[in-house]
Design a protein around this nucleic acid. Sequence first.
DNA 1: CGTATACCATTGATAAAGTCAACAGATTTT
DNA 2: AAAATCTGTTGACTTTATCAATGGTATACG
Lengths: 172, 172
Amino acid sequence: MAVQKTAEPRSSRTAQAAEADEAATGPERLMAAELADEIEFLTARARSVGSGRANIALKELDLRVRSYSVLSLACSDLNPSQRELADFLSLDPSQIVALVDELERRGAVTREADPRDRRSKVIAATPEGRQLYKQAFALVRTSEEHSLGELSLEERGQLRALLRRIAFKSAD
Amino acid sequence: MAVQKTAEPRSSRTAQAAEADEAATGPERLMAAELADEIEFLTARARSVGSGRANIALKELDLRVRSYSVLSLACSDLNPSQRELADFLSLDPSQIVALVDELERRGAVTREADPRDRRSKVIAATPEGRQLYKQAFALVRTSEEHSLGELSLEERGQLRALLRRIAFKSAD
DNA sequence: CGTATACCATTGATAAAGTCAACAGATTTT
DNA sequence: AAAATCTGTTGACTTTATCAATGGTATACG
């Protein structure tokens, strides 16, 4: 269950030597290991390759998956507060501060005082932010398509439903 | 698609105020957002809560998910090299060095020279390492059970199969 | 053969992400 | 109104991630 790396592994796989020796040294010989059956390991690896690809794709907009997520929620017309963003994205509030700082500096989002609770600040997207999100979404879309390419629409629906249940378990 | 945090969010959710105002301020109000439908976001969040819990559980053995993963593969009798570990776990080779260093220092694994290729080193578990893995596996098991609790065995099978396909796409 | 090229483990530098404690201002509780 | 709690923020500090460079091996190939 490790799998944290977020960028593309620079694997090469030139070596087809030592393959006819006694065990097929395939690229993923270790899939036979017990670990490869653990759902949480597979989840970790899936997200690693996925967000790795997405980060590369987003680089041309000078965004990362994290800032994209914040921007996306800011564009959602749900008027999220920073605390809500932190909870939803499983990030520390202080990390949200940095992310919003940068998006705000770029003119993509604004911090607006919440009339109901002057402690909290709701994050809203500017027109420029929405325009940026549009482009970013397209890139992420393509990247995701690349990652999920083999899955049918139905399978994607299944996967989404299953993941939602483990990603948003109410109390525990 | 952010969701990197690996430890337990210290959420509180006392506030049931402002709920009868105009929008139900539920814990996960933002699930209505577009982002919440993205499989890669859900994957990221699922792994975040999962590995967060697992890390807490493993703390009593002074292990983390990363070192557990290495230990697990070392116990697999597949004699993985460090390079294979890096590829499989999506970690940089230099990170593997550090992980193996620590496990070796604890006497859980050993680096053995590969007779076929003296560049690479095969990681093998010691008896103590296997003993440690046994305990760790039990902890991870419980933790995972906690995370996947709502899913039936059949659903877990589906999820595993789907994840495997996106986690191990051959070439791209 | 011998030399160029690629590979593995390792080190070290640097950037990014995660964790935690503390604080000011605002709100809720009692 | 005092105590307790919450929100965003800052700052310190640890862990991960990324990347370049190196010494010892191995492979390719002329």
